[in-house]
């Protein structure tokens, strides 16, 4: 397995090294696909999103630099934006159902998975537990805001709450999520968090 860091591979991708792109693809295929599927809840749209993301990566339409944060976060932000674009184009943004609960879907033998998968799996599990601890209305607003990418106005209409309160409710839900995360990870709320 290629031990190069993501940043090293990205530099090679910029030089049109197909092998480097394949290594990054293998490293992130599951994560990008799973997230795209979570966003679109449609296998074909998820695959199209994966394709679009890697085409963008290859063509450098949105160049990555280390000051943009971790490569994985940048790639996932691109995945989120691409999924939302696909949903908007198909007019499906309002149609995606609310997920009651996220479930672990690890199926492949562990030795076939990228190294980081264990770390992602652990973080994912903590996040799922933390999300479940949110009140239903807070979980719903996180869902509509983050996973459906809805506008402030659509959230206000969908939840029948005043437009002016949407932002503060999102903020509150995210803050509660952080508190639950900190509890799950067994650290005091005052300690710095990398989540």
């Amino acid at each position: 397995m290629d031990k190069s860091t993501d940043s090293q591979l990205y530099v090679r991708i910029r030089d049109k090294d197909k092998v480097a792109l394949e290594v990054i693809y293998d490293r992130y295929e599951r994560l990008v696909y799973s997230f795209a599927y979570r966003m679109t809840q449609n296998a074909q749209m998820a695959e199209d999103t994966v394709q679009e993301v890697f085409i963008e990566l290859w063509r450098e339409h949105s160049p990555y630099t280390e000051d943009k944060g971790k490569f994985s976060s940048w790639l996932l932000t691109m995945t989120r934006n691409t999924s939302l674009d696909a949903l908007r184009k198909k007019g499906k943004q309002q149609e995606v159902g609310l997920l009651e609960k996220d479930t672990e879907q690890m199926r492949a033998p562990i030795d076939q998975l990228p190294e980081q998968m264990l770390e992602w799996k652990e973080k994912g599990s903590i996040l799922r537990k933390s999300l479940e601890r949110l009140k239903v209305e807070q979980r719903t607003i996180v869902e509509l805001f983050y996973f459906h990418g809805l506008s402030q106005e659509s959230i206000s209409t969908k939840l029948d709450i005043p437009l002016g309160t949407v932002k503060s409710r999102i903020r509150l839900a995210l803050q509660h999520l952080r508190k639950h995360l900190e509890k799950e990870r067994g650290i005091s709320p005052n300690e710095p968090s990398d989540v």
Partner: peptide
Amino acid sequence: LPLVSGSMTP
């Protein structure tokens, strides 16, 4: 947050 999606087999 994307990590809540777990790891689906493509």
